[in-house]
Design a protein around this nucleic acid. Structure first.
Lengths: 129, 129
DNA sequence: TCAAATACCGATTGACAGTCGGTTTTTCAT
DNA sequence: ATGAAAAACCGACTGTCAATCGGTATTTGA
């Protein structure tokens, strides 16, 4: 999945705004970068066709919203690009982690460890159900 | 950093082969996908100009090799794409981890935890020096 | 029903990878 | 030193894709 600059901005927008139509998106971006309503519309349409936005018509215009949660989207993205550089039966997800970890500092490591603990306690809770 | 399909293959090649000239790379890829020596040469040149391969002339031809270790390269790549989707002062590296973690299973979690322990022991060793 | 709002279509531009022919430059053996 | 062979370099063309936007068709609500 290869996204253009405007496409990325628009996606990011929808992770903060939940729902908007072309006009609203346009008025938001007009200030910071210009461009016509049409440009925004075709960008929204492109993202829709790529499955990254969903939409349905309410009254006048399509209401767009993010089709995937940010976390899931970024996770998939990372998995995809890592896949391109993994060899054979290698675990691309772990490769990604290992690659990332080489850039971590102490504090970030703490957060990561806490994250694992949270995950484990969540899992053990689910097992009891 | 946006790479083409052949560029990715060539990079991957150099993480396994250490060093090679255009002719060797070409003879390797010829079997699996065709293409002339010239195509390989310009791809090598492009990767060199992007700073992803280094080269120096030894006798006849340039000897190319990967300019970055795979781990560092993938780490940087992930950081970059995550950056595109982080907001404000958010820690893009941690965002990447959190996004990835949502796709981890138990066994992968174990490996990750072990990785952190290794890192910590390495750090404490360095502190003693 | 009709004017305004919106969606859709299609053309153009600009990047950039892939491809390769042809020319220049380099190199080594004689 | 020099000439053939090897390699590098240059430039052109193609295909793909995002961005852009004008113009037309369609939809909607007053």
């Amino acid at each position: 999945m290869n996204l253009g600059e405007l496409e990325k901005l628009v996606l990011k927008y929808f992770w903060q705004v939940k729902e908007a139509d072309a006009k609203e998106v346009h008025s938001y971006f007009e200030k910071q970068r210009g461009g016509t309503l049409n440009t925004i519309q075709s960008t929204l349409d492109r993202l829709f066709k790529k499955g990254l936005l969903s939409r349905d018509k309410q009254g006048h215009a399509f209401q767009y919203r993010a089709a995937k949660q940010r976390k899931a989207f970024i996770g998939q993205l990372i998995k995809d690009i890592t896949q391109d550089f993994t060899i054979g039966d290698e675990d691309s997800l772990l490769t990604a982690f290992v690659s990332l970890s080489s850039e971590l500092n102490e504090g970030q490591m703490d957060v990561l460890e806490k994250m694992i603990q949270d995950y484990r306690s969540k899992v053990s809770k689910e097992e009891k159900v």
